[in-house]
Amino acid sequence: MTAGSRIVAMGHYQPSRVVTNDDLAQVMDTNDQWIRDRVGIAERRVADQETVADMATFAAEKALASSGLTAADIDMVAVATCSSADRCPNVATRVASRLGIATPAAFDLNTACSGFSYALGTADHAIRAAAAHNVLIIGAEKLSDLTDWTDRSTAVLFGDGAGAAVVTAVPDGEQAGIGPVLWGSAPERGEALTIEGWRPYIRQDGQAVFRWATTLLAPFARETCEKAGVRPDELAAFVPHQANVRIIDGIVKRLDLNPACVVAKDLVESGNTSAASVPLALSKLIERREVPSGAPVLLFGFGGGLTYAGQVIRCP
């Protein structure tokens, strides 16, 4: 058993093609103000030829490069995604193959938008159990493949992208950098967001999801902090799933954060990228040096299922 694990490096990738609200207004009955008021998104990135595995690989490559480790050091790869068109080989082995990671435990997991925190919890547990030592975890989504471009209630919401983290065992005597995961779901409300069938599209009961997210998640976010022994007002940053600015504001209102706490709102420029949203937003915060190394950061993912998971990490 080790004393736990920590994130040592992050990386992200977004497709180069920007789709603004005005672009969408040309092909469907919507407008920039309507989208900004209700969701808070100004633009999103949409993949062209890139697959989920391509985006996952690009993000992972950057995380690995800044981690100080090499492909040979990685012994587990976990990819959180709900939008990979290819089922087998899974995305994790495709990434491993392209990065030259020779013999990793490699699996995909699907808990929709909460996926990154599920993967991070799983990586932490594997390291604590000595089943792995250096883990690459990735959230990667190509939601544009699953978007019904004739449904203006969902088509304005989503984007494509990937974020990755390298997680390693902490040396003896050093503080763990990943707090206990709090995870769960509300299966009886699962119909509120679906991606079903052989040619699936995202369908969502926006009011039901909004109500669940703004009323029931703040207590779970608090509990996540309690499990880590950190008070919400001690957090240096809060990185929730990037679904809707009004959901984020609704949760923040119930958390009693310090006014100086950085609240990630990457969706303004990225849209909702499901399992990629938390690592994408966190990776950008780190890149812009908005959070000091070692500072406590609350990650909290939530979405289809309806699933949720979060943990307090120490910023790499």
């Binding site: 008021d37 926006g206 009011q207 909004f210 109500r211 703004t214 009323t215 809707n244």
Partner: peptide, 25 residues
């Protein structure tokens, strides 16, 4: 708007001690 309506419903539940289920909204 539809999301503010959810906030109104949630606040009304608290204020008046009623249950207003999603399908009633």
């Amino acid at each position: 708007d539809s999301l503010s309506m959810v906030e109104v419903v949630v606040a009304a539940e608290e204020k008046f001690g009623v249950k207003i289920p999603d399908n009633e909204v």
